[in-house]
């Protein structure tokens, strides 16, 4: 600690002690330190993904197979009974994972493609393009998104694609704001200025200088936006204007079986049937939120371990 200036050497200057590790090792170290909530979240997400991908293999009956009696009780070949027109609820729950999660993922990806791309472009170009986009998005955001979605659905009708496009566009406004804000913070850094002074093109600056540095907040935001989109689509389906029958979807399943809840005092199992799809929705969003929470703490604190 007491190097004499005479023997000063830049080589010996104390930097942060480092051990070089591969990405895999780093990931493992991060995982080992993860709290229980994060582990819980990751396991739940993994199970959902497996179920969604392998739905046709796991489900005992078909998605729209209504060849059974209506309102059959739990057990007897139908784990959770059947619904009002005689479809196996357990099978529909499994197919629902595929449809509901699939649609939400596609919607969120689309929202990020549009919102993220525009946000990045606005942050770098500044000037009137940025001003125009920012003001236009302020106006769009002055209408609550569920209300806006309802209005647009009343015009364009409730097909899966109009649902995906409408929700994605509405949600892209939020993505735009975040991307623009974080990209602005990076764009004013001197290393970006240094790249511009060097004469680098816009593409290089975006790809190589800015994007790698805004990934952590964007990844976290992807999780949060997914939850929001997922809940919005579930709400719309529940309201009867989202995903339309006979496609199995958790939101509409709650709606279809809602009346069963009145019978809870006679048959508790029948009573909680409508809560199964609702619970499935909640469990996934809680899981994602737990993982995002941990990821945020991780990236804001120990940056080099990510």
């Amino acid at each position: 600690m007491t190097d004499a200036p005479e023997t000063y050497s830049a080589l010996d200057e104390v930097a942060q002690p480092r051990v070089r590790r591969s990405r895999l090792q780093k990931a493992w170290i991060a995982l080992k330190g993860a709290p229980l909530t994060a582990w819980f979240g990751m396991i739940v997400i993994a199970i959902y993904m497996v179920v969604a991908l392998l739905a046709p293999l796991i489900a005992p009956y078909g998605e729209a197979d209504s060849s059974f009696g209506a309102y059959l009780p739990w057990g007897d070949g139908h784990v959770f009974g059947t619904d009002q027109i005689g479809r196996d609820i357990f099978s529909r729950l499994i197919y629902g994972a595929r449809n509901t999660i699939g649609i939400a993922v596609v919607t969120t990806l689309l929202a990020f493609l549009v919102g993220g791309g525009l946000g990045l472009a606005a942050a770098i170009s500044r000037g009137w393009v940025d001003q125009f986009l920012a003001r236009a998005i302020d106006v769009l955001m002055a209408i609550p998104s569920l209300i806006f979605a309802l209005m647009l659905l009343s015009i364009f009708g409730s097909s899966v694609w109009s649902l995906v496009v409408i929700i994605a566009l509405l949600d892209s406004t939020r993505v735009f704001r975040l991307t623009r804000a974080v990209a602005m913070n990076v764009a004013v850094m001197e290393y970006v200025e240094a790249a511009r002074l060097r004469g680098e093109g816009l593409g290089w600056v975006m790809r190589r200088e800015i994007l790698p540095n805004i990934m952590p907040p964007l990844v976290a935001e992807f999780g949060l936006r997914f939850c929001f989109v997922f809940l919005t689509i579930a709400a719309l389906s529940f309201l009867g204007v989202g995903i339309q029958p006979p496609t199995a979807d958790w939101g509409s399943m709650v709606r279809e079986n809602a009346s069963l809840i009145q019978f809870a005092q006679y048959d508790l199992k029948a009573g909680i049937t409508p809560l199964l799809p609702a619970g499935a929705i909640a469990l996934l969003t809680i899981a994602v939120n737990f993982v995002v929470d941990w990821f945020l703490i991780k990236t804001s604190g120990l940056r080099d371990e990510v």
Binding site: A10, E13, V14, A15, Q16, R18, R20, R303, D304
Partner: peptide
Amino acid sequence: DRLPGELSGGQ
């Protein structure tokens, strides 16, 4: 092979 975070101020 180092990242900037692994260098001291002078380096």
